[in-house]
Simulated scan of single mutants.
Amino acid sequence: MTVAPLLLAAGDGALALVQTDWVAQRLRAAGIAVRVVPVHTASAGYSALRTAVAVGEADVAVHSYKDLPTAADPRVVVAAVPERADPRDALVARDGMVLGQLPAGAVLGTGSRRRCTQLRALGLGFQMVPIDGDVDARIRRVDDGEVDGVVVAAAGLARLGRIDRATELLDPLQMLPAPGQAALACECRVDDLDTEHLLGTVLDDAGVRAAVTAERALLASMAAACIAPVGALADVVEDLDDEGRVVLRLFLRGAAATVDDGILRSSATVPYSDGPYSTGPCSGGPYSDGEPTDAEKLGRQVAAELLDLGAGALGTDPALRGLGRGLMGNE
């Protein structure tokens, strides 16, 4: 009996195709037959991919997680969040320069208010100009001398084989990435339990899922669209408890702009576990009390702290007014 291949919907653009192929390769390595189905997304972005899955034209949609709205779509479910690429932002600058080498007044291109606000907060005197287009188009702006540098997602550069163009990978202490940056979301129909189980078993990374859940809960709590000046990054880290045992904790950092383009920061941690003693004392690994991590609660906690600090009125860089929502790598 021939088993029908799993159909993976891939959106327009080089990055979307590379991301979908990355997922396809891992499924094939697990012995699963797959076929990539091109879907014309144009300005519809994630919506077109979801519709293709919902109507049965594909079984799975692969998204850049940061491009998805925080509101759930009742037609689909996120069945897997695979291992994450480097979540940092990257500088691509002329003459191989890093941020500290660029002169005051240097012109940096970015389509993101989040990046713009955090760059301004460094106090290095940069001028920011709005740019859009795919990764290669942005790099050409540097090569053609239109700007001194651009800031893009390191993951996008790496997935496209262009990470060698990065002149600096920006420390999250300087530049917190967008919530969900560098993570993928693999969605299937909400009633397709077999595919949901398969994707979860083969692809899902519980730690990455928890981290991205916390980041997106922060974003949702601040009622921000994915292009709003909010940064967040969560990690599962090791710590020692009061009895000297190694424990895992989910650590979330958040940043938000104020109305005058200042930056407010907050962070918090909670114990991390993806199940009872999954890496517990019997295995010699980090101790777990068996309680699943409430990543959403952590995100809401950090968001509440940022709002209490005065982040209720999100800043808007005048140079970037009028830009639409960032989709398919437009951050």
Rank of each mutant, 00 (worst) to 15 (best):
A85Y: 06
V107D: 06
L8D: 09
R189D: 08
L170A: 04
D239H: 11
A106I: 08
E187Q: 14
L250E: 00
Q301V: 13
A16K: 01
R159V: 03
V236P: 02
D171F: 01
P318S: 14
G285K: 03
D164L: 08
A79H: 08
A80Q: 08
G11T: 11
L49D: 04
T293I: 10
S273L: 06
V77E: 09
V129C: 02
R325T: 14
R50Y: 01
S47N: 06
Y65A: 11
V142P: 07
A311R: 01
L203N: 02
L250Y: 06
V247L: 00
T20V: 09
L17Q: 15
S288A: 13
D132H: 13
V259T: 10
T316G: 11
S288E: 15
P74Y: 00
G56E: 04
D289K: 01
R28T: 14
L7D: 01
R249T: 12
R141T: 10
A223L: 07
L250Q: 02
P74W: 00
A104P: 00
N330V: 08
K66I: 02
P172F: 03
D164Y: 03
D164V: 13
A255D: 09
H63V: 03
D59G: 15
A234G: 12
L219F: 03
E168G: 11
P172Y: 02
R84L: 11
P292C: 09
A10K: 00
G207Q: 12
R50C: 08
P87L: 15
A210F: 05
R120Y: 10
D205G: 10
A182L: 11
P286Y: 14
D21W: 02
L240C: 06
S221I: 00
A234M: 08
A106F: 10
A85W: 05
A206L: 07
M175I: 02
D274F: 09
L320S: 10
V236G: 01
A158L: 14
A319E: 04
